[in-house]
Design a protein around this nucleic acid. Sequence first.
DNA 1: TAACATTGTGGGTAGAAGTGGGTAACAAAC
DNA 2: GTTTGTTACCCACTTCTACCCACAATGTTA
Lengths: 151, 151
Amino acid sequence: MTITENSFTGEFSYTLDSKGRLNIPSKFRSALSPDNDSNFVITKGMDRCVVAYPVVEWQRRVEAGLRELSATSQRNRLFVRSVTRYATTVRLDGQGRIQLTPYLKDYARLDRDVRIIGVVNKIEIWNPDDLENIDELSPEDFEDLSDKVIL
Amino acid sequence: MTITENSFTGEFSYTLDSKGRLNIPSKFRSALSPDNDSNFVITKGMDRCVVAYPVVEWQRRVEAGLRELSATSQRNRLFVRSVTRYATTVRLDGQGRIQLTPYLKDYARLDRDVRIIGVVNKIEIWNPDDLENIDELSPEDFEDLSDKVIL
DNA sequence: TAACATTGTGGGTAGAAGTGGGTAACAAAC
DNA sequence: GTTTGTTACCCACTTCTACCCACAATGTTA
């Protein structure tokens, strides 16, 4: 099972229920490696979305780096704070749902309908309107980047 | 159990009660390693906030950082003194609350409403207004540091 | 087509978490 | 010795949340 660890793809539509719970697509759930303990870390993403990392992913990429950053410069301090401040560890409930924090729900303008997309090793949670309105890559850029990234 | 030692994330709103007691988020309490004896060291933080370290973390800092700094310049010595001078060990009460010292409460302008944020290996306690008003990083700086640290 | 399994959604409820206050113990001040 | 004030411990109350069960809709298998 160690072949593809946490590779998320696809787009899904879900609704936040009255308690603010959000379903995670079952395909994403099964893509979680078992030692993840069914946990995600959710935080602010770029462009007004919420990102969710499997915990191991978060630890590997973020925590390790943040610990190294010295707190001496104001710039570093602001950065570390702005990353961790909005990050919360959440566990899937029995039905595979997570609870969003009020701040993140507000930040990403999530009301009832949400769009969830898989982005390789993380998940993004969007307001459907915002997702439609973000600028798509120009066809030229797309080809340019495609060449470089293989794919 | 090999998870990560004391990694604090997230933001929480609490109130100082009439006795000056401050609740510590349960998520932070459980992130304390058991041998910490339910203790924190609180002291002056950068940018007008109060910082709270688990005792083991505090000890590590004192040994690693402060000791070296102290011998060098007068400026550093002043800094070290101001940090250690106001440092107090506090224990959580039965409900998971701590008592702030008058000096720190005054220094961070904590009145009734406070914001608590987790910053990797320490906790910061803020006046809500101050927290909102600290300069956020410019998007360029953010991306720049993101590239270096995260991916 | 019928039987069954999976998935998304909704809601009740016990226990946890946050908040407030009483009081005994102790130290400092009078 | 008495008074005052602070602190730590205990108990009480309200709010929130994690866990449980339920069910409809969809997909799958025989």
